[in-house]
């Protein structure tokens, strides 16, 4: 366990690297996923088709393949960036498909009577969506969205394995292969870094879920 104390600063920097990756990817995928969910419920057929194609592609492709395709594909389209940003982009694209499905099922879980009542009292589409549907959908969406984000934190290790560098996985990889520390202790430290993020997130989510659970 000496490695944990000797290399503590390296672990901290790796932890911050993972945190940075997760924050960017979480914001990106929540925004993109909601936009795609909006496309999928819109009355405009081309947007619906775009939304379902996006979800089908990114839900069924492994994150590793997405990351490599992004890293090789984007430069050819004239988008250049560091591996870190390719990692953020890949993780965002992949997670957005799951965010979209969570949001969409949340909208679908609002009883039809609610929307019908809203229309019956004369609210417009925007009014019924923003005053009646979305506030109720939000309650059901929070728990699955939380699970998606927790899964994304764990998936960020795949971006690390893909080689963005400077995150917790990279720390574990360098310490075990280049510096020859014992693998078990080193990786235990890496694991602690992830658990520090995922376990409190899980507990917080369970609390939030209880608070939001309202009998329908």
């Amino acid at each position: 366990m000496g490695v944990l104390i000797e290399q503590f600063p390296l672990y901290v920097s790796g932890f911050l690297g993972t945190l940075r990756l997760c924050v960017f990817a979480a914001i990106g995928s929540l925004v993109l996923g909601t936009v795609i969910a909006a496309c999928r419920v819109s009355p405009v057929p081309p947007l619906r088709a775009l939304g379902s194609a996006w979800v089908t592609v990114f839900r069924n492709t492994p994150l590793a393949v997405v990351l490599f395709a992004v890293a090789f594909g984007l430069p050819e389209l004239g988008v250049n960036g560091s591996y870190f940003w390719f990692g953020v982009a890949g993780l965002t694209f992949y997670t957005s498909a799951f965010v979209c499905e969570a949001v969409r099922s949340g909208i679908n879980s609002v009883p039809p009577g609610q929307a019908e009542a809203a229309r019956a009292v004369g609210l417009t589409f925007t009014q019924s969506l923003s005053l009646v549907i979305l506030p109720q959908a939000f309650r059901t969406v929070v728990p699955p969205l939380g699970s998606v984000i927790i899964a994304m934190i764990k998936n960020s290790a795949i971006a690390g394995a893909f080689g963005i560098g400077g995150d917790l996985f990279a720390v574990g990889s360098t310490l075990t292969s280049a510096q020859g520390y014992a693998a078990a202790a080193t990786l235990f430290g890496v694991l602690l870094g992830y658990l520090v993020l995922t376990i409190p997130a899980g507990i917080g989510l369970a609390r939030l879920e209880k608070k939001l659970a309202v009998a329908r």
Binding site: I153, K154, N155, S156, A157, I158, G160, A161, F169, G172, S173, T176, A183, A184, L187, V190, L191, Y194, L195, T198, I199, G202
Partner: peptide, 15 residues
């Protein structure tokens, strides 16, 4: 459930 699956694989292969 909290362990990233990559870490689990890496752990198995290294340890």
């Amino acid at each position: 459930r909290g362990v990233p699956v990559v870490i689990a694989i890496f752990f198995a292969a290294r340890v």
